[in-house]
């Protein structure tokens, strides 16, 4: 009897046949189209980065769990997702050691130091990306041009915008299909949306975080446009950078996002505001990873203020 009363942390799964590890593998599945598009657009170098990222994330997790004499949980898919998302956040032509060090940092420092899956405060893949960004900015901001398959570099549309260049040669359609410079997994919006639709239909993520996130970015960039109020190019901001990848696949991470629906909305709103502020007035052209990490830090606070009411009781102030 005692064994049947398992005390576990959220998310509480009640459906038959569902488990954390199954959901993880489903997320991996939903990320495949974006990766395939990235390889198609940037060539085999992108595939190399993805494989290195995933393999080194899994190996790091296995070695650390072996070393600390914990149960080895590499088959639950969470390390695969971390490695995959980290690789998706890198340019295609980075040196081979960059994804390896990034994955090591993600798993060792951002995940296992806190106690492994379910205990980490920050999204491991984003922590790894920010570490690489702060340490080797040169490699992290040299993007290869789409369909060139060699060392032709090209700035991202957002970086061009930051420099004050005019962006007429990039059509929305090209942005949507991914014909632009950028990180491997963020460029092809079509493939990302296909994966996201799969997750939404299966009910693994809800629309609250990505919806409020993308809406806030769109609204904010529309209001504070370059030629006065209400003149912003909101569609451009939504389609460029890592917004779609971040909103659907990284901000919705179960571990580092709030638990309730209301909390989700607040979380997405905060991410959107921070992203837009960094893009419009910050020093970096792109702010999705920083915005999500900052809101990760605020998640316990949001959870405190969006507690669900116990039926039949009044709200009590936290």
């Amino acid at each position: 009897m005692k064994d049947k009363l398992k005390v576990s942390a959220a998310p509480h799964l009640h459906k038959k046949g569902e488990s954390v590890s199954k959901i993880m593998w489903m997320v991996v599945l939903s990320l495949i189209p974006a990766g395939a598009a990235g390889v198609f657009i940037f060539g085999l170098n992108a595939l190399r980065v993805i494989i290195l990222g995933v393999v080194s994330a899994v190996v790091t997790e296995a070695l650390l769990q072996l070393f600390t004499k914990n149960k080895i949980t590499i088959l639950d898919g969470s390390a695969v997702i971390t490695g995959l998302l980290l690789a998706y956040n890198l340019p295609a032509d980075v040196p081979f050691w960059l994804p390896i060090i990034g994955s090591f940092f993600s798993i060792a420092i951002a995940k296992q130091v806190f106690g492994g899956l379910g205990q980490n405060i920050f999204n491991p893949a984003l922590a790894g990306r920010v570490f690489l960004m702060a340490s080797w900015p040169k490699y992290m901001t040299t993007f290869s041009a789409p369909f060139s398959y060699d060392a032709v570099t090209s700035a991202t549309p957002l970086a061009l915008l930051k420099e004050g260049k005019i962006l007429e040669h990039i059509s929305y359609w090209n942005l949507f299909l991914g014909k632009r410079g950028g990180c491997i997994g963020e460029v092809c919006i079509l493939a990302l949306l296909a994966g996201a639709a799969f997750l939404l239909l299966k009910g693994y993520i809800s629309w609250h975080i990505p919806g409020s996130y993308i809406l806030t970015v769109g609204l904010f960039t529309y209001i504070f446009g370059p030629r006065g109020f209400f003149s912003g190019d909101w569609l451009f901001h939504v389609l460029s950078g890592g917004l779609i990848l971040g909103a659907f696949f990284m901000a919705t991470d179960y571990v580092t996002s709030p638990l309730t629906r209301r909390g989700h909305i607040v979380f997405g709103l905060g991410c959107g505001l921070l992203t837009a502020v960094i893009r419009l007035w910050g020093g970096y052209p792109e702010g999705v990873s920083y915005a999500i990490l900052m809101m990760n830090a605020a998640t316990p606070l949001i959870d405190r203020y969006t507690k669900t009411r116990i039926y039949g009781t009044k709200f009590s102030n936290p």
Partner: peptide
Amino acid sequence: VEPALLFIMPSGALLVIGLLLG
């Protein structure tokens, strides 16, 4: 070898001290 700039920034100091404390 290209050094990781993060470690000479303040965040690197916090990381190193935290890990050493652990």
